[in-house]
Structures are given as structure tokens and as C-alpha cells.
Design a binder for these strands. Structure first.
Lengths: 264, 264
DNA sequence: AATATTCTTTGATGTAAGTCAAATGAGTAC
DNA sequence: GTACTCATTTGACTTACATCAAAGAATATT
């Protein structure tokens, strides 16, 4: 596999309306609480169900939950009960040591599943913090397991989600263990814009939802190093940066920094 | 959670005979190919089955496979078919970039499961290399999924194994992103000896199965730094090192280096 | 037993990223 | 509009670890 964060994850087309809903940040009340008519379905649920099975699948989601910016969806030590599918908003997950050092372990956006860390011990081992106002589907894990036994395609889907997280973390280990600052930052930007693009957003522009310090924590760098690397890329004409706004001017140059081999 | 690699994973007692079997490196022919009378059962299988269910569970394992030292159990790009339960031997898993940089993502020993990386894409994304002659149980993933639907306790077990791997990797991210060389090496030694102890080996002595370079790759350090850190710990009277042999003289000192808070 | 090979240790030196510090810019509360 | 606060940028300097190099052990090969 390509080292670091995968930059060629493919995804079924996400229809325009779901993009609109994300942009307009519609309140959950305006949308029926059911996977069967959720526009993010293809992101967090398996595909290829007949209508009646799809309705049974709606039982996975018990409720919705809103989390304000800065709020915690769950914290380290909380009893584990549910997985969460992000409908809108943006999260970070992080672990911390007793002496207060924090490591961001991931950034999650619409359609992604969080809470998998809690399964092994029945307690969460990391914090999930909303970096903007968010809306999640609460999926009690007991429901997930019950329905997984009934629907092999859901079972397979759950396994794939967990495996994908393992593979993603392998990539982060490669980043942290082997790559230089510029490679890490390039990989981070490419991965983020790729995931946003898969959700119907621009493939060249984005507004970062996290601080330089949070990016640095994720990448094993200090915030000053992240800032300097952004400035460097900007001076080289590879990206345009204005605070949280980032535009990728030369995607190939970024890919080349991240992985010199696969680019001409 | 404590940052880095967990150092207090508990485990049901592993009976003396399994230890003996590992030590004597008995050939698989001498042992019936069945989980129901496997001495490592409590490490890789769920507990609390009645005898008839246990026999059905034997169907998970299709065959055994031997891997010589230096041999590959699977490589990046191989089609994914099975998970593997290690019976004897010691593995490393690693990912690599096109330009040849390698990142060791884990070291696995008897009773541990490898191959989870292949589920998401139906292809393996890492290499599993035997660091000593090894013997594994081949568990076709189709069998695992079929039986998981039948036995909720197996389903839960599979989920826990995957979640455990995610949590372990979170800890490694903390190590790589936040910790200094001494902390990383201390965490590594404590984690390794703890897992060996859970398998009936000494809680203070071990013979490393990997090179300094492999340890360094796992910890995001160069082999010289690993060697120097070992020498430093040795000079400080914390450990005794003779090549691959390591004896922990002051476990509390090691714990204190890894995590200053939780020790007096 | 001799030789080659691979692994480990140790020293000398280099450097990428960290640390410290100060200025600037954005966002928010009053 | 002014005063805070918090995030970001940039510069000057430091440092932990990497790199380069060479010698010494252990293991494998002949």
C-alpha cells in the first residue's frame, strides 16, 4: 500500500442533495430519523438492500444527538454503549497521558463512524470532541450486533469499517515513524481534501476545522512547524493559505512531496 | 487511558502445558487440529462454550500452516481469505512505501490474531513476516463470519479483537507522536515482557526475536538510538542487556520513565 | 576451523524540528 | 468602537535524534 494516509479511497457518488443538506446545516427535525431515506446512507451503511430489509435496518439507529462545538460526544472512561455515525459536523478523537500530553488520533467527518475504541473493554479509551456543531446518529452496539447476525451484508460492512480504521492507523504510523514534516503535512492535506471531495465538496479548496496545534498533534509536529510548512508550501506556490482557508494550487506537487515514486 | 502501549492487559491463566508446548516447539502433528483441545484457546477464542458448541467452533480453523523464519505469512497485495491465529512463533507486520521505507506496525506472538488489515479491501495491505519458525491456524474469514452469526459470543469476540487492535494502534500513535526515545523504549520493553508473562514466561527476562532495526522501525527511531537507549538503561542499572537477551532489573524505574505520573 | 555476513555497539558530527519569544491578525464580549 | 482572548506567523536559538563511520560480537557458510 502507499505509505501514510490513503489518497485514493473511492466512494460511490454522493448525490447533490446530501451536499446541500450538509452545506445548509439543516436541523435534524426536517429529516426523518431513518437510514432508509438518509442521504448519507451510502457513506455509513451497506448498499444493495431491498426496501423491506432497509426498513429493518432503520432499527440500528436509536436516536439522534447534537453536540455543540467544543462539546464531547464521549470521553475516555465513559461506558461504551453505542457507535455514532456522523451526520453533520466534524470531530477529532484523541488520547491523553496522565501528565497531560494529548495525541489526536483522527479527524472524522460526515458519514464516518466513531466509537469503535470502546468495544474491547466496554469503556471508551479516547475522547471525541466536536470541532463544529455536529449531529450524530446513535447506534446502540447491541442493535448493531443483533442486526449483523440477521444481515450478512451489514455484518460484512461492520467488519470493513473496523478493518478500514486499522489500515488507516497503519498509515498514520508510517507517517509518524518514517516521514518528514513536509511529507506529513502534504499527506494530511491530500487526505482531507480527498475525503471532502468524496462528499461533494471542492477537490482543491477547504476550510480547516481544526487549529494548527491539533493538526500538529495528529502529525506528531509542533504547531509552529505546521505553520512554517504551510508557509513554505505557500511560498513555493503549491497551496494558498489564509488562516483556516486552504486552496491546493498544485496537487501533483503535493503528491510528489508525499510520495516521490508514484508521480512522474 | 494510559498513553502508549497498555502495560496492564490481563489474561486468564494460561496453563503450564501450553507453555511447555511453546517451549518445546512441538510439531503440529502431535496436537489435534481443533480449538476444542487447543491449549491456546483462551488466548484466541471466546470462553464459556458448552462442549457441543465448542466442537462446532472447531470448524473455524480449516488448516494449519508453518512459516519458516524469515518467511511471509502474507504480503501486501495478496488476496485476503483468512485470519491467522498464531500457535507458535513470533511475527512482525509492516507496511512500506514505494521508495522502500518500511514501518513495522506490530509484533505478534502466540494466541494473537493477524490478517485483519485485509478485510476492508479483500487484499492485504501489510506484510506478515515470521521472526522465528512459526505455526498458525488458518481461519477462512467466511467461516469466521458464518459462525459469528450463529454464535453471538464469537461475534462479540471478533469485534473485541478488532477494537483491541484499534486501541493498540492509538497507543502507538501516542508513542510516536508525543514520546521521547527513552519513553518509547521503556514502553516497548514493558509491553513485550507483560505479554510474554501472560503466556507463562518470566516477568523479568526475555529474548528479543527482532533486531534493533525492527524495534527502531516500530518505535520511529534509528537502530543506533535503540542501542544507545538500551545501553543507557543498562548503565543506570534498570535493565541487563546481552545482545537479544534482556532482563528487567528495575521494573518500577522503567514504568516511571514511561509514565512518570502513575508511579510513586 | 576459517571466512563471510549480519547484528550491535560506540564515537564524532550534522540537522530537522523543537523551544522560546514577540508581533500580528481574527474573533468575541462588553 | 475598544478591550480581551485566542490563533497564527515569523525569527533566533537549542536540542534530541539522525547520520556517518568504524570496530567488535554473534551467527551462518564453506
Amino acid at each position: 500500500m502507499a505509505g501514510g494516509i490513503s489518497t485514493n479511497e473511492t466512494l460511490n457518488t454522493v448525490c447533490f442533495i446530501s451536499t446541500l443538506i450538509i452545506w445548509l446545516n439543516m436541523t435534524p427535525d426536517t429529516i426523518k430519523v431513518a437510514c432508509s431515506n438518509c442521504n448519507l446512507r451510502e457513506l455509513c451503511m451497506p448498499m444493495g438492500f431491498n426496501p423491506e430489509d432497509m426498513q429493518k435496518l432503520d432499527e440500528v439507529v436509536a436516536t439522534r444527538r447534537r453536540v455543540k462545538q467544543g462539546g464531547m460526544l464521549f470521553s475516555s472512561g465513559d461506558p461504551f454503549t453505542s457507535l455514532y455515525a456522523i451526520r453533520t459536523g466534524f470531530f477529532k478523537t484523541c488520547v491523553s497521558t496522565e501528565d497531560g500530553r494529548e495525541q489526536v488520533t483522527g479527524f472524522q467527518m460526515a458519514g464516518e463512524i466513531i466509537g469503535l475504541d470502546g468495544i474491547v473493554s466496554d469503556f471508551h479509551s479516547c475522547n471525541a470532541v466536536a470541532l463544529e456543531d455536529a449531529d450524530v446518529c446513535v447506534m446502540p452496539f447491541a442493535n448493531v450486533e443483533d442486526l449483523s447476525r440477521e444481515f450478512p451484508v451489514l455484518q460484512r460492512h461492520v467488519h470493513k469499517i473496523m478493518s478500514r480504521e486499522i489500515v488507516r492507523e497503519n498509515g498514520v504510523m508510517m507517517l509518524l515513524g518514517n516521514m518528514r514534516a513536509e511529507e506529513r503535512v502534504a499527506a494530511f492535506l491530500l487526505n482531507l481534501v480527498q475525503r471532502l471531495h468524496a462528499r461533494g465538496f471542492s477537490q482543491s479548496e477547504m476550510v480547516l476545522r481544526m487549529t494548527r496545534e491539533e493538526i500538529g498533534s495528529y502529525l506528531g509536529l509542533k504547531l509552529e512547524t505546521v505553520s512554517r510548512t504551510f508557509s513554505k508550501f505557500s511560498e513555493d506556490g503549491i497551496i494558498e493559505v489564509k488562516q483556516r482557508y486552504v486552496r491546493i494550487l498544485e496537487p501533483d506537487a503535493l503528491k510528489k512531496i508525499f510520495n516521490p515514486q508514484t508521480c512522474s
